[in-house]
């Protein structure tokens, strides 16, 4: 599904190397988690994959189902099936959540050469998905993320994911700012989307999210590289011992 080879990335504005040779291969239908201390490059990896400005790829490659991701505009990556659930979902005053969702769904369908969804079909779909995530009609009507609580914003990200049906979902610290109940709700939303053809990359600081979204593979990222990979037990090790021992062992 997603294949990253020796990816090197620096900040565009300053001469600061963030990613120093990331290698990662995610098979269809699997859930991978990336953990790592602050500043290890986890969020940068998610931004670079989704095409955000401000980063310069200085080496390596990244592909989605064989197609070169780094060569695409953000909207092309989305249409190809990539989705990033933002750590800090953006507020867009003046754009209704519903308008936003419908425009996005139909833009992707158009890009893939599919027919646009009719207003009625769209409405039916969005209502069903919103209900599962306990998103009420009022939240759908309000401007995108404006005045939403932390939990509502994250639920809104998952709603977008459910509507867009991407193949490769990257969740960037989706657990940050969530209380226990909200985390459960969000996780259920994610788990409902798990399928054979869909893969997930879950970026998190804490093991507790992985209690809800059970990963197949866990990677530890430090200083711009993936330094260790293993099964779910690796996450537990981090939870109990912290990163220090783990990193010392690697070095």
């Amino acid at each position: 599904m997603l294949e990253i080879k020796d990816l090197h990335v620096k900040l565009e504005e300053e001469d600061k190397q963030i990613l120093k040779g990331v290698d990662l291969k995610i098979e269809p239908g699997t859930v991978h988690a990336i953990m790592g201390p602050n500043g290890s490059g986890k969020s940068t990896l998610s931004y670079v994959l989704s095409g955000r400005d401000g980063y310069e790829v200085t080496g390596g490659e990244a592909s989605l189902e064989g197609a070169d991701l780094l060569d695409m505009d953000p909207e092309e990556r989305a249409a190809a099936g990539l989705f990033l659930a933002f750590q800090y979902p953006v507020e867009i005053p003046g754009v209704g959540n519903m308008t936003f969702l419908r425009t996005a769904v139909n833009a992707q369908r158009k890009a893939r050469g599919e027919n646009e969804l009719s207003a009625a079909d769209f409405l039916k779909l969005v209502r069903a998905e919103a209900k599962a995530l306990k998103i009420d009609a009022d939240m759908l009507k309000r401007p995108v993320n404006v005045g939403f609580s932390g939990g509502e914003k994250k639920r809104n990200e998952i709603l977008q994911m459910a509507m867009l049906q991407p193949k490769m979902c990257i969740l960037d610290e989706t657990d940050s700012g969530l209380d226990v109940d909200a985390m459960k709700l969000v996780s259920e939303g994610v788990n409902a989307l798990r399928s054979e053809g869909r893969s997930f990359l879950v970026i998190t600081h804490y093991q507790r999210l992985l209690d809800h979204i059970k990963p197949d593979v866990v990677h530890i990222m430090a200083a711009g590289r993936i330094v260790k990979s293993g099964g779910p037990e690796l996450a537990l090790e981090v939870e109990h011992n912290g990163y220090t021992d783990l990193l010392a062992e690697v070095v």
Partner: peptide, 13 residues
């Protein structure tokens, strides 16, 4: 940032 958010959902520039 808002523009990128919209584009990341597949809406062209």
């Amino acid at each position: 940032t808002g523009l990128f958010y919209l584009r990341s959902r597949g809406i062209p520039e």
